[in-house]
Write a protein that binds this DNA or RNA. Sequence first.
DNA 1: CCGGGCTTGT
DNA 2: ACAAGCC
Length: 605
Amino acid sequence: MEDEFGQLLDPALETMHQRVIIHIDIDCFYAQVEMLKNPELRNQPLGIQQKNIVVTCNYVARQFGLKKCMLLAEAKELCPSLVLVKGEDLFDYRQMSSKVTSVLQKFSPLVEKLGLDENFIDVTQVVAEKLQNGFNSGQNIAGHVYSDVTENCMCGCFNRLSVGSVIAADMRAQIYEELGLTCCAGIAHNKLLAKLVCGVQKPNQQTTILPCSVPGLMAGIQNIRKIPGIGHRTSEILQSLGICSVSDLQNSSDKSLQQALGHDVVERLKKLSFGHDDSMVRPSGKPQSIGLEDGFRKISLESEVKEKCLLLLQRLMALLVEDGRIPGAIRVTVRKYNSANRQSHRESRQCNISPSIFRPKITVLSPNARQKLLMSIMKLFYKMVNISKPFHLTLLGIAFTKFQERCSGKGSITSFLMNDISVQSVLDFRNMSTSAVEEMECSPADNVCQDRSGSESEHEPSPKKTRSDFWRIRRKRSFTESDVDSINKMEVPELRLNTGEPFDKEVFQKLPSVIQEEVMESLVDLPQLTNRLGISESDNTSTGVCPPNVDPTVFRELPSDVQQELVQSWNSVNKSHTTQSPQTNSSGRKPCQNSILQYVSSSSK
DNA sequence: CCGGGCTTGT
DNA sequence: ACAAGCC
């Protein structure tokens, strides 16, 4: 509308309002969960406390003037009768949150979580179907309408949004009936507006905005910081450049702004300031990482660190088990005390871990496995904190990441092959020593590229001998130099690719005893697996597509996608072993998550 | 001790 | 790996 003709080319998304987006926000989520757990809290001013902060409170408490994220003392002063419930353990909230999401997913598969208490739902398709089936909202919008409807948009969005408002009302009713939670909803043609308008009428209500009211809504925003996407830092930068109001941002054409935030960011923010947002609702799925952290006054002893980590680890395992997936990496986060830089500056390090730690089942960690994880954790910790000098931490966190695609439960055969035990344990070994094996750490792409000219045999260590973690050599030196040297890289592929047995005995015996132990330990579940897979003597009767290392009978029973993956993983290994060109295998579809395949292919022949 | 998680972009 | 964003 306010766009010029020339800009109409710019995808008509914003002038056509084709989508219908609903934003659902549970009212004071933590407080509602606590009130469900203990109904006596309903009529009292309730605050949810995390450490020194009242992170949210019920509406009774809000009448005293309490706001979100108030300091404990401040809240107590406003409301001496405030009842406090600790909310540091998010378990119940997380659980309720996923119930909410489940309810919403019954309406549309396009549900995106934002934190624990908010969801975006793209109901465009649902609305279209309803309209096609002759559903008539009677032009009535359920709940509130933002401002006045001054004009009738030609694109038909009024109809769509009114149907959307009915769906939103239905969603809220179901959330209340099934879970006992009240919430707000915002209905609009994009995510930004849906979220902004959601909060217009506050508890337990919903609001729809029509395109004609958008300029009014945006102009009504006093603080630029209120626009989702403009956080603390960005608003500071904007303010320092004299951009304080929404209209300031709309009219900004500053060059210093571009250089401060980058061209793309500025363009995005400017569009936001007009209420334009073409970002999609991205179905959330499972989280990319699962972690826990704990803040405290002070930790300055190594033993305290270990203690804390073990506690975190134990709690984390419960979450991991619940999730069901197996992580491929672990990350440790610290916050060092810093009086000057009070802004929580965090530091983190991560490393890959052997999935075999979690075998045969991911249920409970064996004491041994726990020790191993703690070792990894501490190694990461030492990278950040030099414990030979005094230190002062105010936070410790542990998180698991890099989850395997298809794992545990059904069909982790591929992951078994990909993360072959013997190879994996060598990978672990690599982590504990600085030696020729270390360059496996560099990315597959690096390996391939650098090998391009050099060709065969000795895969040269990458020139960038990056962080020479000297502590790694000094500390935790469980292997001798000869141990390290005895692991000839050429033996690794042998170990893996010998199809007669899980691995070659002679090669195995040459390994350091520590490694042998680990391999043996990881083999606990191997008999079943080898039987099931029928990994046996060169059964090389090439039966169609079935890889020779897999029993054809078993193979045929597998889901086709698993079959495909097996073929691919076999091909990539086999090709690299028999032919040459490391290139070919890296170009294979499935990029191996494990750089070992790259390593194997580039170092062997 | 501005909480405790999580995601995304550089 | 980190900064910044979201709740």
